[in-house]
């Protein structure tokens, strides 16, 4: 298959209104990916499927990735003019900034006809709360139907143009999206006859558990009797 850089140029030349970024992959697998953004992305998908040099007719794997908001520290080097006659000093400054979070959908495309691949496509949502819509590729590759439903169910990405976007693994009345990094499990503790360790800490929140002499509430040592 052509190099990703070449394909990126070709896509940018052919489609106006989209941006294509190459996401390098430093791991030995060498599977770098293309990040698509802009409007009319489904047309790009049709092009990837039908272009005679690519013919990516199989969308093998669709999955979501959650990137929560995180703090990044950038180190900036600044040159400050020194006193007259002395060399300028270089001062390192650390700047903290918050990188906004997003949800990502990853598609692994292969060509059965030409036996090539994978081409890894990525789509990103605007944020993790209200701008979570990306175009659905189900009209292009039917294999996205269940897999996009799964990403919708577990990550909360909304696929625009999906014919039947419902939860698929969790039940309909379920509220949250369990694969998100900040998902909090429901507190469904059940009575344990001999709680210990972090189970003991959990048990104490629900009813009084007799404390062994010398035991502490610290989950690391709870249930162990100190000397």
């Amino acid at each position: 298959m052509e190099a990703l850089e070449v394909l990126r140029e070709r896509l940018c030349a052919r489609f106006s209104g989209i941006e294509v970024a190459l996401i390098p992959n430093a791991s030995p697998s060498g599977q770098s990916s293309l990040l698509l953004s802009g409007s009319g992305l489904r047309e790009v998908a049709y092009f990837l499927r039908d272009d005679p040099a690519l013919r990516l007719d199989q969308c093998s794997n669709v999955t979501g990735v959650d990137w929560p908001e995180r703090e990044v520290v950038d180190t900036v080097k600044e040159t400050q003019p020194g006193a007259p006659g002395e060399a300028p000093t270089i001062v390192e400054r650390k700047i903290k900034r918050t990188e906004p979070g997003c949800l990502e959908v990853v598609y692994h495309l292969y060509s059965i006809a030409l036996r090539q691949g994978p081409l890894v496509l990525r789509l990103r949502t605007g944020n993790r709360t209200d701008a979570v819509t990306v175009p659905s590729f189900t009209p292009v590759w039917r294999s996205c139907e269940f897999q996009e439903r799964e990403v919708f169910d577990l990550f909360g990405v909304v696929f625009e143009g999906h014919p039947d976007l419902r939860r698929i693994l969790m039940w309909d009345a379920f509220k949250d999206h369990p694969m998100r990094k900040d998902y909090v499990e429901p507190d469904d503790y059940e009575w344990e006859p001999t709680p210990h360790g972090d189970v003991l800490a959990k048990a104490r929140k629900h009813y009084p558990v007799p404390m062994a002499p010398g035991a502490t509430d610290d989950p690391a040592t709870a249930g162990k009797i100190s000397e």
Partner: peptide, 23 residues
């Protein structure tokens, strides 16, 4: 593993079984 990602797949008896990992 150092930061990166990989998709590995083989021909399982039921079809393509693949694992996608991000490190």
């Amino acid at each position: 593993p150092k930061a990166g990602e990989a998709y590995g797949r083989i021909e399982g008896p039921k079809g393509e079984i693949g694992f996608y990992l991000i490190s």
